[in-house]
């Protein structure tokens, strides 16, 4: 069976909406140091805790097998590396096609900061924006940090082939149930 791209999925039944995952995501990608005093830019996480009435849950990239964001990107800045869908942010021109294409709203445009100051484009006089989405913490040895810091263990790494296999095995019992005589 093919190995499809793993991705991180939140559990709405466990999530308490605390946003520790968002903070950890930003810190892990952008901050040297582990305390709040080291954050010198606004926080731009790659996963988005979303609230619908009584339920909260983080929403993030599924690393789609036929990623619409990659197809939509004008600059071909979104590419597949192994089983991850990544954005080459230097190529991004902020066209917003990926924002529209993504069925989950998992991509955002965020400003770039150097040394704590927002980068302003020379002629346009406005902040430079680039596409930002979950990269499965691809430069982090231990993998996704959001999963580690969630106090409720509401995030997990889904490995689709394992998911399917486990479900198939559980389904055998249901079939036996149908044919019980």
């Amino acid at each position: 069976m093919e190995k499809l791209s793993p991705f991180v999925l939140g559990d709405g039944k466990k999530c308490i909406g605390c946003k520790a995952c968002e903070i950890a995501c930003h810190v892990s990608h952008n901050v040297e140091g582990i305390t709040a005093g080291n954050i010198d830019t606004p926080v731009f996480p790659k996963l988005f805790v979303t609230r619908v009435e009584e339920v909260t849950m983080p929403v993030q990239c599924h690393h789609c097998e036929d990623a619409p964001c990659a197809q939509a990107c004008l600059e071909k800045a979104i590419y597949f590396e192994g089983d991850k869908v990544l954005i080459q942010t230097e190529k991004c021109k902020g066209c917003k096609d990926c924002l529209v294409a993504c069925p989950f709203g998992a991509v955002e445009l965020v400003p770039r900061f150097t040394k704590g100051e927002v980068v302003i484009q020379e002629n346009l006089g406005k902040p430079l924006l680039y596409g930002n989405k979950c990269d499965l913490c691809n430069t982090r040895k231990q993998g996704p940090i959001c999963i580690e810091v969630c106090p409720e263990k509401a995030l997990r790494l889904v490995e689709p082939h394992k998911e399917k296999k486990d479900k198939n095995i559980k389904a055998v019992a249901t079939i036996a149930g149908m044919f019980k005589k």
């Binding site: 499809l4 791209s5 991705f7 069925p103 989950f104 889904v158 689709p160």
Partner: peptide, 9 residues
């Protein structure tokens, strides 16, 4: 289909 894997889940 965009291959998002929601159906699989």
């Amino acid at each position: 289909c965009v291959g998002c894997k929601n159906c699989l889940m």
